[in-house]
Nucleic acid binder design. Structure first.
Length: 643
RNA sequence: GCUGAUGUAGCUCAGCUGGUAGAGCACGUCCUUGGUAAGGACGAGGUCACGGGUUCAAGUCCCGUCAUCAGCUCCA
């Protein structure tokens, strides 16, 4: 007998060679019916794979992440089988489960191309094959046998994968007429895949390396029930409505025109208002926290960037230098070197530190054309940048302050973030500076993260070339991840720019630099903000807070008075005196997602009152202007989530 | 930059297998002065992304370029 420990901690005895299915049955028939596989000591097991030793066992169903992974991994096999039938000679690369579904990278036979139009065909073949209820059968062979198999099959991709598994037993998975190199962890049979949707087809470099051949990647998702697929599709459609590129146009926040240039967003009046509100909010915080604001030019001498090392390190992603009177200038790709010049402009004493220089600095980077996307990825953007020059002793406290400010920003806007400690990859030579100093910097960052009880993960190889970072990452409406805020430790630039301060010991010392930007880029932050609120900005951010709508032209004058009063009080207000019906005016006010509409007809004019309507909620009834102003004042504070 | 898809009026989109461009909204003028999500009439508006080619004839077919979208690579 062996002992099986279940997730709730209970331990049961089973005979040697029992299966997850037997264990599930012993709990309930329903669980057994819904189980798609099992996690045995952290490894994925098929439901019928014998368990030999005492183990921790978790039964996986489609309702948990492990179950989904097995389901989608198995679905990738099914898609591969369909592709093999439809496009004989296809070579298969890798086909993993991902967060929402799966993909398979394939190398199609010469002359074959798969486009979006072909996807339904493949879908149908998958559904057809699924109905065969084929089981996923695992088998094992020696490394040499496996190698020979794929060498004969002429599949250089699998050969490469097997090379990486030298000396190990190789496992295969076979279902229907398809055999694949596979570690294991499958659903009981193809028949439980009831709903199939192939989502997109795109190119993907083999092994993620742009020097390698580009394969065809097909993304798909499957479900055990059609209803689940319907819900998934509906959710996706809802998400697309939040897309900032769509809302940005509809709400007249920004535009991008080729006449100015791709990736160079133009802020329209309403978008500019939002941006100014965010800047005002942050500037106030910065002053409280001892920052000093500076302004530096948009271009700088190329020598600066040679000193910093950004040029030529990033020369591929910078605009070409501009030659003027025998000197070369760069559109600044970052603000740091300019701030370092301010630091270096006079002798500094330890008494001056920490010196915190802040700038909403606009930088220009040559991003590859295929990368540009709305406000998220652009060629010109403004960082809410600052550089903190401090002593080593002050570093931790300053890091804590910087992280705290970043957290305040996300809290103020109610945004969910994940935190990444971005560390160096020891196997890479892209980093500047002494590895030992890196170790220290990373240790300091980790200590701060622990001290502040950040819920973080470590990203190796995610550091910048001059130092480790704490990055704050959010998702956009369609699930893509973007880095927003960042706090970085830098021992390299003080060396390169020979920054110094006079210590209390009358000796010269190097300061440490913290680079930090809570919003990150104003453009990207606002793109996320638009999607976060689905364009329904809270009152304090809304570019137009209230629209005044006279019912008939007889009330235009009365409404002008209200409009002027609100405007004088500092509210962002619009008035619509057109000879349109009030329904039309309301519709347009709602469509522009303006938080409130003040409506006045003959009745209100005679009583000296107004009627108030809230966006998305409807008529709030008759009020006096005083009541409304009081309410608006209470809503008009940073961090207020009310609309 | 790479792979694939797409590009028609300010916006959203129609335009079947080639036969000389349409709708709704927006815009302008006029009528209408209305009670909580779109009142009516008329009008103006397009080198069908751009450049070549095939054809008697190209928005439609072919090639190239540019841009947008999805993904890959990259991201100080």
């Amino acid at each position: 007998m062996i002992e099986i420990t279940l997730p709730d901690g209970s331990v049961k005895e089973f005979p040697v060679g029992t299966t997850a299915y037997d264990i599930a049955m012993s709990i309930s028939e329903g669980l057994a019916r819904n189980s798609v596989g099992a996690v045995v000591n952290g490894e994925y097991y098929e439901i019928n794979k014998p368990i030999i030793n005492s183990s921790e066992v978790k039964i996986a169903t489609f309702n948990d992440d492990d179950g989904k992974q097995m389901f989608w991994h198995s679905s990738a096999h099914l898609m591969a089988e369909a592709l093999q039938v439809l496009y004989p000679g296809t070579k298969f690369g890798i086909g993993p489960a991902i967060e929402n579904g799966f993909y398979y990278d394939v190398d199609l036979p010469d002359g074959t191309k798969i486009t979006t139009e072909d996807l339904p065909l493949i879908e149908n073949k998958m559904k057809e094959l699924a109905k065969n209820n084929s089981t996923y059968n695992m088998s094992e062979s020696s490394w040499e046998e496996a190698m020979e198999y794929y060498q004969q099959a002429g599949n250089e991709y699998k050969v490469e994968l097997i090379e990486g598994l030298k000396g190990q037993k190789i496992t295969f998975c076979k279902h229907g007429g398809f055999t694949d190199l596979c570690r294991g962890g499958h659903i009981p049979n193809t028949g439980i895949i009831k709903a199939v949707k192939l989502l997109s087809v795109a190119g993907a470099y083999w092994r993620g390396n742009s020097d390698n051949k580009m394969m065809t990647r097909i993304y798909g998702i499957t479900f055990p029930k059609q209803k689940m697929l319907d819900e998934f599709i509906q959710l996706r459609e809802e998400a697309e409505k939040r897309d900032h590129r769509k809302l940005g146009k509809e709400l007249e926040l920004y535009m991008i025109t080729q006449n100015i240039g791709g990736g160079l967003p133009v802020w329209l009046p309403k978008g500019t208002t939002i941006r100014r509100i965010l800047e005002d909010f942050l500037k106030k915080e910065l002053l409280k926290r001892g920052y000093q604001e500076v302004i530096t030019p948009h271009i700088g001498n190329l020598n600066l960037y040679k000193t910093s090392g950004h040029y030529p390190y990033y020369s591929e992603s910078q605009f070409s230098p501009i030659k003027v009177e025998e000197e070369e200038y760069m559109l600044k790709p970052m603000n740091c070197p300019h701030h370092h010049q301010i630091y270096a402009s006079k002798p500094r004493s330890y008494r001056d530190l920490p010196l915190r220089l802040a700038e909403f600095g606009t930088v220009y980077r040559y991003e590859q054309s295929g990368e540009l996307s709305g406000l998220s990825r652009v060629r010109g953007f403004t960082q809410d940048d600052a550089h903190i020059y401090c002593t080593h002793e002050q570093l931790k406290e300053e890091l804590i302050n910087a992280v705290d400010l970043t957290q305040l920003v996300f809290k103020t806007f109610g945004m969910q973030v994940t935190t990444r400690l971005s560390f160096r990859d020891d196997n890479s030579d892209k980093y500047a500076g002494d590895p030992e100093v890196w170790e220290i910097a990373q240790k300091e960052i980790k200590e701060v993260a622990d001290m502040m009880q950040l819920d973080y993960f470590v990203g190796l190889g995610e550091a910048s070339f001059y130092g480790p970072k704490i990055d704050f990452i959010v998702r956009d409406a369609i699930g893509r991840k973007w880095q927003l805020g960042t706090v970085q430790v830098d021992y390299v630039m003080p060396e390169r720019f020979e920054l110094e301060f006079m210590g209390s010991d009358n000796q010269k010392h190097r300061p440490v630099i913290i680079h930090r930007a809570p919003f990150g880029s104003m453009e990207r932050f606002i793109s996320i903000l638009i999607e976060h609120y689905a364009g329904n900005f809270p009152f304090w951010i809304a570019p137009v807070q209230v629209s005044v709508l006279p019912i008939g032209q007889n009330q235009n004058e009365y409404c002008e008075g209200i409009y002027t009063k609100l405007k004088d009080l500092g509210f962002r207000v619009e008035i619509d005196t057109r000879s349109e019906k009030v329904n039309r005016k309301i519709a347009e006010s709602e469509q522009m997602k303006i938080p409130f509409a003040i409506i006045a007809g003959q009745k209100e004019l005679e009583n000296g009152t107004v009627s108030l309507r809230q966006h998305g909620k409807g008529d709030l009834g008759t009020k006096t202007l005083e009541e409304i102003v009081e309410m608006f004042n209470s809503l008009n504070v940073p961090g207020s989530s009310q609309h």
